[in-house]
Design a protein around this nucleic acid. Structure first.
Lengths: 327, 327
DNA sequence: CGAGTGAGTGTTATCGCTAACACTATGCGC
DNA sequence: GCGCATAGTGTTAGCGATAACACTCACTCG
């Protein structure tokens, strides 16, 4: 390689990295040789000597859930723009040890920083146990995590939705919550509960689902059976995500309960399908691109020695559609 | 490190990799030192000397589309089980050059093999232009690609669906296709068309969407306007994915056309929501875990010098639900 | 009982690159 | 015309690991 261009390997390095002065004609000769030989610098050797791998690690949940998956895309985007490669360590079942394992395996990959997409309550604990020679930031992670955290303001999204439903004149709002071990589920539930309390509305018992349409469907059947629709009975239901809202809609349809005629329903996430449900679903949109950008920003800051306890909240947006429309 | 354990660095290497004989007590001393120092072998150094990075690259589409995203999970799974790390190079807009770029950037990362999730017609071309010092396999890629290809048998899925609809007594079946530059869309369309022809049914003009619910909705409005429902008019519609089918359902509902009462509708993908659409959707399920496993298998085979032109088809499964149920 | 064997460990070279410094030629200021 | 800066290039060392081989024992075997 250096031979073909008639220069030392050092000059090749300079040309490729754009470091140091090189005479234009020399540069051209080197480039030509690079082209001819299809030369590609060995990233391992470079990483070895510079101590920088140019790679970020992401611990992600292996699921198609809209939120986590979109967050991942947002981060990928930001990292790619900044010239970082991304290696993914996905976790099929989140938990203390699996997250710790994933982080460990990324550290072995010599990543320069780690993003943990950790919507679980256990994630904070897991991160607490991780020695952090490598900078770590969490997305949607626990308050208690000893690392910077970026989240969408789930509480506020739930507050807005609940207030929207109350403003429609309902006595109260039922809630189909997500799993107890998901922070987002807890935050949404808290936002809903405290909003009801603040408005002096009765707080009905929570019905818990697992994010799946099936669990929403089950919740819908329970509600349809237990609570007579309308007239101060079942007026409004806020589901913690759109998939469960879909299950609700299905159950209500089967039970002959009309939406929005008899009941108002709202979801959370604004999946692409939500606008085409029957009826189109009122829901909460989260800006995952922004989340990704912020996350990456915090990570680079952290790599530069920034604050361990930074917190950043992204505001969500309420999207009103027919499912909470006029009757 | 070696000092603390009172051995040479070579013995440490042997303990960590389990190569060569080491006396149990020596091993224990080394392990203790590793533990105490939190020592982690430097992967760059190892990669440099062994020439193996332990990393696979995946070129993926940056989208939440169910198929590609699930395929990615399937591959991650298989790779993780085999102890490979995964680095992702995602492509926001697929095309010849962007795919070539992504492959290039992965090669610079010194990955040992590359999987291209390439549902585009251009992907085959892009791969043709890639010098393959690194083994490459494609998922859902073009027939013409000069690399091994794993796909779900889209043609067969479409055939089964179309035959199912014809068996319900319809004169013909309309088709809402995916974008022309997606191979899967073309295969599904071909399966539909040829099945109609084989049964001597008239082939209505294709309505083309872009996978989105919005495009399905637009298609539904067009159909509802142009073709009177039932009685040898609009009887059955096969949408190339579930999201578009959802749009169809929405449009039909708005137009007062009942499903399955007036029209039968089928989709493709079996997204988790499909069973909870109104009505629950008949669709085609693809086994992405199997696809991932096969893909990884072909890749390792290829890394060992296997056939360049291997092809593997995974059979899909028709899931019948209410949307093509009794009227 | 000497040679051979294999377990257990150390020594050295090397992977491909960049950092650091060394060297040469050219141009500039005074 | 002499020193001195600077452009442009080369030389050398070393990143942290493994491969390959060398070495030392202890033990077996004929």
């Amino acid at each position: 390689m250096a031979g073909l261009a008639g220069v030392s390997h050092m000059t090749v390095s300079r040309v490729i990295n754009g470091t140091g002065p090189v005479r234009p004609e020399t540069r051209a000769r080197v480039m030509a040789a690079v082209e001819e030989l299809g030369y590609r610098p060995n990233s391992a050797a470079r990483a070895l000597v510079t101590g920088r791998s140019g790679t970020l690690g992401v611990v992600a949940l292996e699921s198609n859930l809209y939120g986590p998956a979109s967050t991942l895309h947002g981060i990928e985007n930001a990292a790619r723009e900044a010239g970082y490669a991304i290696t993914i360590s996905s976790v099929s079942r989140p938990g203390r040890s699996s997250i710790a394992d994933a982080v460990e395996s990324l550290r072995r990959q010599a990543v320069e920083g780690i993003v943990v997409i950790a919507p679980h309550v256990t994630a904070g604990l897991a991160l607490a146990g991780v020695p952090s020679a490598v900078p770590v930031v969490a997305v949607g992670g626990g308050e208690s995590a000893p690392v910077p955290v970026i989240s969408v303001d789930q509480y506020d999204g739930a507050r807005r939705t609940t207030e929207h439903l109350l403003a429609l004149g309902h006595r109260t709002v039922w809630h189909v919550a997500g799993p107890e071990d998901w922070l987002e589920a807890l935050e949404r539930e808290r936002g809903w509960r405290e909003t009801l309390e603040r408005h002096g509305a009765e707080v009905p018992p929570v019905i818990r689902g697992d994010w799946s349409p099936a669990s929403g469907y089950a919740a819908g059947r329970t509600l349809a059976k237990k609570v007579p629709a309308g007239h101060g009975g079942l007026d409004a239901v806020f589901a913690a995500n759109d998939q469960m809202a879909l299950g609700l809609l299905r159950a209500f349809t089967e039970a002959g309960i009309g939406v929005p005629g008899d009941v108002h329903v709202a979801g959370f996430d604004d999946v692409p399908e939500a606008a085409y449900f029957t009826p189109p679903l009122t829901t909460v949109r989260q800006d995952f691109i922004e989340v990704g950008r912020r996350t990456f920003g915090l990570l680079t800051e952290r790599m530069g020695g920034g604050d361990q306890h930074a917190r950043y909240l992204v505001e969500p947006e309420l999207i009103v559609r027919e499912s909470t429309g006029p009757r």
